[in-house]
């Protein structure tokens, strides 16, 4: 292929597109990564598809409704990625439970809410949802 002006432009824009993609992919903060590691142990964490329901925009960060449903999960952990300390809650479910739950949490600002679940077969699955927070909820 001869390097014409047209080809050079095409290559350049392709390179830019490639470098932009990883930025959009989900990345958890260091503290949350540690918490996820502690939760998962040796098992590999995969992006999953169980239900995590959060509002897209939360006006008041002091009380943001969050619910999840991970049928068959033994354990579920909720993290608020952008809070001063990311831990929110963790749950262990017995055989009678359908491994769902709903609560209200505090979010310091716009950030990702992460749910990590250990399924019945021991696999670790993670789901993240972005929440826009108008007024943060960590006092101060």
């Amino acid at each position: 292929m001869s390097l014409t002006r047209r080809n050079a432009l095409a290559l350049g824009s392709a390179a830019i597109a490639v470098t932009l993609v990883p930025l959009r992919a989900f990345a958890a903060s260091e503290k949350s990564m540690e918490a996820i590691k502690a939760f998962a142990g040796e098992a590999a964490v995969t992006e999953g598809s169980f239900d995590l329901t959060t509002p897209e925009i939360a006006e008041n960060g002091n009380t943001v409704p969050v619910s999840f449903s991970a049928p068959g999960a033994k354990r579920v952990m909720l993290l608020a990625d952008g809070n001063p300390s990311p831990g929110v809650a963790s749950f262990e479910f017995g055989a009678l439970s359908d491994s769902s739950g709903s609560t209200r949490i505090r979010l310091a600002g716009t950030q990702n809410v992460i749910a990590v679940a250990e399924m019945a077969d021991g696999s670790i699955v993670q789901v993240a949802k972005a929440v826009k927070v108008t007024i943060g909820g960590c006092g101060g």
Binding site: N62, T63, V64, A80, N83, S85, G87, V88, A89, S90, F91, E92, F93, G94, L96, S97, G101, S102, T103, R104, I105, R106, L107, G137
Partner: peptide, 16 residues
């Protein structure tokens, strides 16, 4: 049925 641990990020008047 369920056992949960809560961190300070749970709102005032905890609802579950």
């Amino acid at each position: 049925v369920v056992a949960a641990t809560f961190e300070p990020a749970i709102s005032t008047n905890p609802y579950f």
